[in-house]
Amino acid sequence: MSKPVPPEKLAQAGAWLAALGVPAILLALLGFLLWRGVPGLSLALFFADTPPLAALRGAPVFDGLWPACLGTLALVALATAIAVPLGVASGIYLAEYATGRAKALLAFAIDLLAGIPSILMGLFGFALILFLRRTVAPDANTGLLLSALCLAVLVLPYVIGTTRLALENLPLQLRLTGASLGLSPGRTVRHLLLPAALPGIFSGVMLAVGRAAEDTAVILMTGVVANAGAPASLTGKYEALPFHIYYLAAEHQSPAELTQAFAAALVLLALTGLMFLAARVLQTRLERQWTTEPTP
């Protein structure tokens, strides 16, 4: 057996290494996070010295995570509300209607958008405000809405890309079925292709939600602050979980504050993880629905 190791074996060894290594690293990360963060988990983490029930009714909370949690939720809801309709519509158009040079050009613009670093969205938002102030709206200011808008642009390509890919990857039979049933292209899209592509589209939305919740660079430049209380208006400054963690990681003035950072990281991870799981559950349910629908 003096033959060299066959490439299959080498590849197999590499694959095993990756398959064992990555989960191991993740486990170490998670373990460390739990070890440092769990001791900080308590009601006081969220509400500090404000009674929780009072806080839920709107009493101001200082030194707790509550305002940051609300800020992040508001941010994600707004950004998704802007990005999803726009993104799904664009994805459908690119996959089903656009042709020739126009399609190539539009698709290229979207690809380009996907490649733009998030900090540039933030810079854009910041510049936009400076521009607006000098021209038409002297009172324009950085705040929740601006951040949500920039985040929406950031996650838009995720929604567009997955929608388009999900539609384009559908089997040809489905399109032929539509045609053979005498459906117009529009109806084929609506009644056959879209339902089939829904799981794919939802995976895009899932990516978008996760990305919007965790991004720090955009909000860093468009209105997030360390202390602002719960978000009160669309134009106001706000707190957000990822920024809070970033801020405390660098700024913690005591071991207790650092523990708070780790606990906040656990909360954010739980939040993004929960959204992720919810999207997955939804996705599998829709998949099942689609596969059982044709046989009444």
Binding site: P60, V225, N227, A228, G229, A232, G236, K237
Partner: peptide, 9 residues
Amino acid sequence: REIRISVAA
């Protein structure tokens, strides 16, 4: 409660 003050670094 009607006053909101934000502090940024």
